[in-house]
């Protein structure tokens, strides 16, 4: 298995990247960590005629704390997210979830931007971006714009990025006060693609009622799937087991749309979603109460 020939560019500044993308448009693909793109190229499922390697653009590789947000450059490695103190403190959901992404050998190379732009429905980072209300900064030669995560994912391996744009930065809001989090997934073996997974956040109001809830699923449709109706069931209520069970039933039967695969039938994926929803809601609630 060898990739088809391509023309290779390794620019060292964002400016050069944007010039090249402007010139080649859809003919060019960006090479970020390469942990999904290179396998696809080895299989020749993907045969870009031009490859723009972003690995030498050092200005895209940063994680910094700003006012109430963490700013992450699109080329920050997943391994750096995993051990970042600011991420651990201010976006504990992301800190908990990153070790579920493949193996350390993959996270050493894989990047946050690469995984987001790849928009694989089975990947963790798109789900986390949606759950965390991230904003994504795209740039082309002439302008830049911010895109909300909920408007970014446009279906299977598809995003709102235009052919001349590159994702440069991810803005992650700090977790709100009185918020509990939980990320769980079930995979055949540790590090494999999960059969089902969910990122859950619960924010309590001053009366310990659920002020807002987030339930976002991986491998549950053609992109990260948010269970908006189940979230509404929980909001404004005191969360008890009965309510948690009905939310889990609703989301697993009505709101997700898993496709099934060789490892898990659709029914089994729904079963997992039900069980993971209950577990994560309970854990998130417990953490929200502990931090109250």
């Amino acid at each position: 298995m060898k990739p088809a020939p391509f023309e290779y560019h390794a620019p060292s500044s964002i400016e050069e990247v944007l010039d090249l993308k402007h010139q080649y448009g859809d003919d060019a693909k960006f090479l970020a960590g390469g942990q999904s793109l290179v396998p696809a190229m080895n299989f020749r499922i993907v045969q870009p005629s031009v490859l723009i390697d972003l690995n030498r653009v050092s200005e895209l590789s940063f994680i910094k704390e700003d006012k109430n947000v963490i700013r992450v450059g699109s080329m920050a490695r997943e391994r750096h997210l995993e051990f970042d103190k600011a991420i651990q403190k201010h976006t504990p959901l992301l800190h908990e979830a990153v070790p579920f992404i493949a193996h350390p050998q993959i996270r050493n190379r894989g990047t946050i931007g690469g995984s987001i732009v790849n928009a694989d429905p089975a990947a963790e980072l798109p789900v986390l971006m949606l759950a965390l209300n991230a904003r994504l900064k795209a740039k082309n030669k002439n302008a830049e714009r911010w895109i909300d995560a909920k408007d970014f994912f446009a279906g299977m391996f598809t995003t709102a990025l235009e052919p001349d744009e590159v994702l440069v930065e991810i803005e992650l809001p700090f977790a709100k006060k009185n918020t509990g989090w939980s990320f769980m997934e079930v995979a055949p073996r540790s590090g494999d693609y999960a059969m089902m997974g969910v990122a859950t956040l619960i924010t309590l109001d001053k009366n310990k009622k659920c002020k807002s809830a987030k339930l976002v699923y991986l491998n549950a449709g053609d992109g990260p799937v948010e269970a908006v109706e189940a979230e509404k069931l929980l909001e404004g209520e005191v969360l008890n087991d009965t309510l948690i069970e009905s939310a889990a039933l609703h989301t697993s039967e009505k709101e997700i749309n898993p496709f099934g695969n060789i490892h898990a039938s659709i029914d089994f994926q729904r079963h997992l979603a039900n069980s993971l929803t209950k577990k994560t809601l309970k854990q998130a609630l417990q953490r929200a109460e502990e931090n109250f």
Binding site: M1, Y8, L31, G34, Q35, V38, P39, N42, F43, D53, R79, H103, P104, Q105, I106, N108, R109
Partner: peptide
């Protein structure tokens, strides 16, 4: 394609798949 790990090397001191790097 990055699954088996047989080609793992160290890239600047960190383990990585050599089959997923040009």
């Amino acid at each position: 394609h990055g699954v088996c790990g047989a080609c793992t090397i160290m890239f600047d001191g960190e383990s990585a798949r050599s089959c997923l790097t040009f």
